[in-house]
Design a protein around this nucleic acid. Structure first.
Length: 475
DNA sequence: GGTCCACGAGACTGTGCGTA
DNA sequence: TACGCACAGTCTCGTGGACC
């Protein structure tokens, strides 16, 4: 019996699943023969990698769900296998429900409560209330199924003329205040089976910055740095990079050797490194920004790059001994994170090959997360047994907190505290200053709140006023 | 130590549209 | 044309167990 709580196959008896086809190519019949095996086919359109297919509990492919995925593929301009995998996983949940309940989803009833989709919605709500899945997941699944039904109706695959369709498109009205305070209604298109997701109450113990982050105190940072001394040089440098630049894991792992060559420090002792779109270094959503790397860290990285250890890893890697290679590689020579640019190279390579067996393997930081939990955290707990579990991104939050504190400490006479906040906002790449203001508000920095209490509150009010949630005022 | 797999959670972006 | 914001869709991160 599965011990996982949040696992589709533990919530249902059905063995329905999603499998992915490594390389998927549509074919057209060029020459028909009496025997299908002798027929000749021609390639039709592009090849798609890692295309998901829904398999029913009895092991056969689901014709209707897979037809839907194909139709969606036909309408897609930019194919992304992760998007299709996401839709397939949402739909397979519905398939499992249908098999368990032995329901015919193509049969529509006058009484809407008898329709399979209505019963599925009820089940999703029950699972949400029982804490088996989140409201977000329930919302995503019912929306995916509604879209699937829209396809059935559009393509005339069901007898909807007789009983109508099992859901209704509805317009919900929300209240919007403009900058002058005038309130008006705005219509949002939805459907009558939508599952409402209540707005999450902010957790005062964390900072909502790309997830719920918990910055470390200076004491905790010291413990981490001490434990890191026992780690390999690669992991030391990766963790230093996060703590001293605030970069995300994705950015650190996609740094290339060429990015560090020939860069001179500025007057304040920082190497200014552009990252994001067009630089070859990935950022979230490829957002362009400039990282400020302390020169001592940049020098350590250069020494590491020239070390025999780094050279050995490069020799095992696909890029080999080249400046195009990543700064950090695992001991097997694989990247910790496959950059967007390399993903594209791999996709083109597999598409161009005749082989249908080549696998698109992408790395997305699993090794680092695994290392943090399995190796580093136990090492930290040898120093401090009470040390809580943490995420790599908490290092970024700690960087933000350190930076803010240092900016406030060195604030020139007569300068606004908001100057410090705006500086941190730019360095962290926050789109919205309200995210940066959370750092100011964080409980461990109460002494700073007291110092700048008045200014802080007036600044905060401005943002609070602009983001008051008015939904629900209108029915 | 690192990889693989199968998910779940949730943050971010695009969309829709009335009004100044 | 910019702005407001909930919803829907997309995509990244995280988890846990098994395995090499």
């Amino acid at each position: 019996m599965s011990t996982k709580l949040k696992n589709g196959q533990s919530r249902y008896q059905s063995k329905a699943k999603v499998v992915t086809i490594k390389k998927f190519q549509l074919l057209t019949l060029a020459k028909a023969t009496h025997c299908f095996n002798n027929a000749e086919f021609e390639n039709y359109g592009d090849a798609y990698l890692e295309f998901p297919v829904i398999i029913q509990g009895d092991g056969s492919p689901s014709e209707i769900f897979n037809l839907y995925l194909l139709k969606k593929l036909e309408q897609t301009i930019q194919y992304d296998f992760k998007t299709f995998a996401s839709i397939a996983h949402q739909l397979v949940d519905f398939q499992r429900f249908l098999e368990d309940e032995q329901l015919d989803f193509l049969k529509f009833h006058k009484l809407k409560q008898l329709n399979a989709i209505f019963q599925y919605r009820t089940r999703l709500i029950e699972q949400t209330n029982a804490g088996l899945i989140s409201a977000n997941s329930a919302r995503g699944r019912i929306n995916a199924v509604v879209n699937f039904y829209r396809f059935l109706v559009t393509e005339d695959l069901v007898d909807h003329q007789r009983y109508g369709i099992p859901f209704k498109d509805v317009y919900k009205y929300i209240a919007v205040d403009n900058e002058f305070g005038a309130r008006r209604k705005m219509a949002i298109k939805s459907h009558d089976l939508a599952i409402h997701v209540p707005a999450k109450a902010p957790n005062p113990e964390t900072i909502a910055d790309d997830g719920e982050l918990s910055p470390f105190s200076i004491e905790s940072q010291t413990v981490i740095l001490k434990a890191l001394l026992k780690s390999s040089r690669e992991y030391q440098l990766m963790f230093y990079f996060a703590l001293f630049t605030g970069a995300r894991l994705q950015t650190i792992c996609t740094l290339r050797i060429k990015n560090l060559i020939g860069r001179k420090p500025d007057s304040q002792g920082f190497i200014r490194l552009p990252v994001g779109s067009g630089t070859g270094i990935d950022t979230k959503f490829q957002k362009p920004m400039t990282l400020l790397i302390p020169n001592w860290l940049a020098q350590d990285l250069k020494i590491y790059i020239d070390s025999p250890q780094a050279q050995q890893r490069r020799q095992k890697s696909s890029y080999g001994e080249s400046d195009e290679n990543y700064v950090f590689l695992t001991k097997l020579g694989t990247p910790f994170y496959t950059s967007k640019a390399e993903q594209q190279e791999l996709i083109e390579k597999i598409k161009a090959s005749d082989s249908f067996g080549a696998r698109l393997k992408l790395y997305e930081g699993e090794a680092v997360r695994s290392y943090l939990k399995v190796v580093l955290l136990p090492e930290i707990r040898l120093i401090d047994p009470q040390f809580p579990s943490f995420k790599f991104h908490d290092l970024r939050a700690s960087f933000g907190m350190n930076l803010l504190e240092s900016q406030l400490q060195h604030l020139p006479e007569g300068h606004s505290a908001m100057t410090a906040v705006e500086y941190v906002q730019a360095r962290m790449g926050h789109r919205n200053i309200s995210t940066t203001l959370q750092y100011l508000n964080y409980k461990s920095r109460l002494q700073w709140r007291n110092k700048i209490q008045h200014e802080y509150e007036s600044s905060l009010m401005k943002y609070v006023n602009s983001s008051v949630n008015l939904a629900g005022d209108l029915s």
